[in-house]
Simulated scan of single mutants.
Amino acid sequence: MDESVETFFNTEDAQGPLAEAVFQQMLEAIYQGRLAPGGVINEVSLAQEFGVSRGPVREAIRRLQGIQLVTREPYQKARVVSLSAESALELFQMRMALEGVACNLATHRMSDEEISQVLSELEQDRRNRLIGGGNGQGRSAPRAFDFHERIVRACGNQRIIHALCGDLYHLLRIYRRHSGTVLERKHDAYDEHWQILRAIKARDAGLAESLMRSHIERAARHLSEHLPYPEATTSRGG
Rank of each mutant, 00 (worst) to 15 (best):
1 M>C: 08
2 D>E: 15
3 E>I: 12
4 S>T: 12
9 F>M: 13
10 N>H: 10
11 T>K: 12
12 E>P: 00
12 E>G: 05
13 D>W: 08
13 D>L: 12
28 E>S: 11
28 E>V: 04
28 E>R: 12
30 I>G: 02
32 Q>L: 15
32 Q>W: 00
34 R>H: 09
36 A>R: 12
37 P>Q: 05
38 G>E: 04
39 G>P: 00
40 V>R: 14
40 V>W: 05
44 V>A: 13
46 L>R: 03
48 Q>P: 00
49 E>G: 01
50 F>C: 06
50 F>R: 09
56 P>C: 10
57 V>C: 05
61 I>C: 03
65 Q>W: 03
68 Q>W: 04
71 T>I: 10
72 R>K: 15
74 P>D: 04
76 Q>H: 13
79 R>F: 05
80 V>G: 02
81 V>M: 11
82 S>Y: 03
85 A>T: 03
86 E>V: 10
88 A>K: 03
89 L>D: 11
91 L>I: 11
92 F>T: 01
92 F>I: 02
93 Q>M: 09
103 C>Y: 00
104 N>F: 14
104 N>D: 13
108 H>K: 15
109 R>H: 14
110 M>K: 07
110 M>H: 07
111 S>K: 07
112 D>L: 09
114 E>Q: 15
114 E>H: 12
117 Q>H: 10
118 V>T: 08
119 L>E: 14
120 S>I: 06
121 E>N: 11
122 L>V: 07
125 D>Q: 08
125 D>P: 00
126 R>D: 04
128 N>Q: 14
132 G>T: 10
132 G>M: 07
133 G>Q: 15
136 G>C: 09
141 A>I: 09
143 R>C: 02
144 A>E: 13
144 A>W: 00
144 A>Y: 00
145 F>Q: 02
146 D>W: 08
147 F>V: 07
151 I>E: 03
154 A>F: 04
157 N>H: 13
157 N>W: 05
160 I>W: 02
161 I>H: 05
161 I>Q: 08
162 H>V: 11
162 H>N: 14
165 C>G: 04
171 L>I: 12
172 L>S: 09
174 I>D: 01
175 Y>C: 02
179 S>M: 07
180 G>K: 14
180 G>E: 15
183 L>H: 13
183 L>W: 11
184 E>Q: 14
190 Y>E: 11
190 Y>H: 15
192 E>P: 00
193 H>T: 06
193 H>R: 09
196 I>H: 03
199 A>H: 06
199 A>C: 06
200 I>M: 05
201 K>F: 00
202 A>L: 08
204 D>M: 00
208 A>G: 05
210 S>L: 06
210 S>R: 12
211 L>V: 05
214 S>Y: 06
214 S>N: 13
216 I>Y: 02
217 E>N: 09
218 R>N: 10
220 A>R: 03
222 H>A: 09
223 L>T: 03
223 L>P: 01
226 H>R: 15
228 P>F: 10
228 P>V: 11
232 A>Y: 09
232 A>V: 08
233 T>I: 01
237 G>H: 09
237 G>M: 10
